[in-house]
Amino acid sequence: MTTTTPEVRESAPSSDRPRRGGRGSVMSSTGLYIATAIAGFLFLIPFYLLIRNALSTDADITGENWKFFPTDVQWGNIGELFTDETVPFGQSLWNSAVVATLHTVGVLLVCSLAGYGLARIPYRHANKVFYAVLGTLMVPTAITFVPSFVLVSSLGWVDTYRGLIIPGLFSGFTCFLFRQYFLGFPKELEEAARVDGLGYWGAYWRIVVPNSLNFFAAMATITFINGWNSFLWPLVIGQDPSSWTVQVALSNYMTNQTVVFHLIFMATAFSILPLVFVFLFLQRWLVQGIAQTGIKG
């Protein structure tokens, strides 16, 4: 199942190309590759700069002569990042890992259950409940950060994992996407499960979820990336440096000018690294998920 989409994608004939052959098409395909290569080069420059600066000395970064590659690569910068007392980056990295992981698990659990309930379980007022969920889509979470902060601070959740994670779990949008997905789930499978004596709960965990792992993987990838990269809410909640996520930590290093250049860039590289791995390994599900749902978060 999972491998079919990319394969189809790869082998699909590029439909707006005329039949190949002849010198013209060789010329145009050379031009095509040159254009793509230039665009790709431009897209990779920021990554190159990041790695270059992370492995340079400050003198090389700010030096008079632009060096494309650091004259002597400073692998020691990696160790320095995690031992320098002025940069509590290890803690931030750990915070981000905890927050993004629990965020992903929580969102998937809560929103998928609700999506299934709304899609499949007959209940007289299900429509009203669904409208109550849809209504929250009208109000983007980014705009409710002031009232949410007011609420969370009155609960005493500032600077805690609870405060960072729990308010973000109840995504009307993710619930909506799960509902749409479950509406298209083959009913026969569940009916067979019922005949075998499973209730809704049993059918959900034993039949529906195991047969929906592709969709769950896609949603998990998207949710994890969003959780790792989110900035506004962790900024509002994480007031003490011990509760900073990597994004908040980077933002502070950038504005305070107390941290040296090469450490800032090394920290940025480490903040991106986990996602690049997630990304390269799970790209298939990510692409599939985006193509299916049309939305990132």
Partner: peptide, 24 residues
């Protein structure tokens, strides 16, 4: 090439801001 163009999606706005502001 699809991966190359798609890869920046993995970066956060904070990281991009940092590269843009302090390097480019």
């Amino acid at each position: 090439f699809r991966s190359v163009f798609f890869l920046p999606t993995a970066c956060s706005y904070v990281a991009a801001s940092l590269i843009w502001k302090m390097s480019i």
